[in-house]
Amino acid sequence: MAAVSPAEIAIYHSWIDAYLVSAFVELFMDGLYTALIIVTILVIASIKQKRSLSDYVIYASLFLLYAMCMVHLGSWAAHIHDAFINHTGDTSTVFAFFSLASHQAIVRDVMAVAMTLVADLILVWRVFAVWGSSWKIASVPLILTLFALAFGIQYIDLATKPSNLVSLKWITDVAGIYYGSTLGNTVISTLLILLRVHSLSGTKGINRYWRFLSLVVESAALYSVILIIYMPYVTGTDFATHAPTEIVQSVVIPITVSPSLSMNPCYPLEVIYNV
């Protein structure tokens, strides 16, 4: 086995540190997410109005997102346990284990892409509902969603190849387009919702439903800012400085569902559509 230089050991060590920190950061973020889900359940339970089929679909989607987020966290915790407990050793040994394609890593990638897909589809449905069931308008965010899905599948496929994980060549080709598409979908969908409410009722409608709209805008803005911060990391090709990507990603995963959670049950889109 060839000797590993001190510089390489330092790089490996930075990656191992990033892996461990990211697991704790994601655990903390998922704790906040769990609290938010509990509040959402209490709000839903407190509403006595009759619910439509679309309401139940949205509720089911929110809980599906939460379940996938927990699966992502569980697979990450299992991977960390395998690396530091079951395959413990020196820095090179632990790093080599993380560099291998594993079922835990594949599960995380699948859950991340699936969560983004569900969250983006909820945004598409919002635009569709607000614009009077117009597929012509909703087609723009829908195309971006399908575009992101195509590159997300490629993202998963390439992540199963250890050589690509080490070289990071796949990052610039796929990740930038993938996250750029979902970012574009979030921004465009939010603007379309605001435009529709304003066009139907002007400033009066904006003021009337400001609580709902502020939730939509703020959650979308939070997700957009996080992605803007994340993209320079995920599209970088310098392996030595790429480790912080893992930590930032542990924030991106729970935040992915924030635009979806802003679907406040007190303000159904059908009501806004009829202002």
Results as ranks from 00 to 15, higher is better:
1 M>G: 09
5 S>C: 01
7 A>G: 02
11 I>M: 07
18 A>V: 08
24 F>Q: 09
25 V>A: 10
30 D>H: 10
31 G>E: 04
33 Y>W: 14
37 I>Q: 11
40 T>G: 12
45 A>L: 15
47 I>D: 12
49 Q>L: 04
49 Q>F: 00
50 K>T: 14
52 S>Y: 04
57 V>E: 09
58 I>M: 01
61 S>R: 09
64 L>D: 13
67 A>V: 10
71 V>M: 07
74 G>L: 02
76 W>E: 13
78 A>M: 07
79 H>Y: 08
79 H>P: 03
81 H>Q: 07
82 D>S: 14
83 A>T: 03
87 H>G: 05
89 G>W: 03
92 S>A: 09
94 V>D: 03
97 F>E: 09
97 F>C: 11
99 S>W: 02
102 S>F: 03
104 Q>W: 12
106 I>L: 11
112 A>N: 15
114 A>L: 12
115 M>G: 15
118 V>A: 15
119 A>Q: 15
121 L>S: 13
123 L>K: 13
127 V>A: 01
130 V>F: 14
133 S>N: 14
135 W>L: 14
136 K>W: 11
137 I>V: 15
137 I>P: 15
138 A>H: 14
140 V>F: 09
142 L>T: 13
144 L>Y: 13
145 T>M: 09
146 L>T: 11
146 L>D: 11
147 F>T: 14
148 A>R: 07
154 Q>N: 10
155 Y>Q: 03
156 I>C: 07
157 D>Q: 06
157 D>P: 00
162 P>V: 04
166 V>A: 06
167 S>P: 00
172 T>Q: 15
175 A>W: 08
177 I>H: 12
180 G>Q: 11
181 S>V: 02
182 T>M: 14
182 T>D: 13
185 N>Q: 10
188 I>V: 08
188 I>H: 11
189 S>A: 15
193 I>T: 03
193 I>S: 02
197 V>D: 01
198 H>D: 03
199 S>G: 01
201 S>E: 05
203 T>G: 06
203 T>N: 09
203 T>Y: 03
204 K>M: 12
204 K>H: 10
207 N>P: 03
208 R>G: 08
210 W>V: 07
210 W>E: 08
213 L>C: 05
215 L>F: 00
218 E>Q: 04
219 S>H: 02
219 S>L: 04
226 I>Y: 01
229 I>N: 06
229 I>F: 08
230 Y>H: 11
231 M>D: 01
233 Y>E: 13
238 D>Q: 14
239 F>H: 07
240 A>T: 10
242 H>G: 11
253 I>Y: 07
257 V>S: 06
258 S>P: 00
262 S>F: 00
263 M>T: 00
267 Y>E: 01
270 E>H: 05
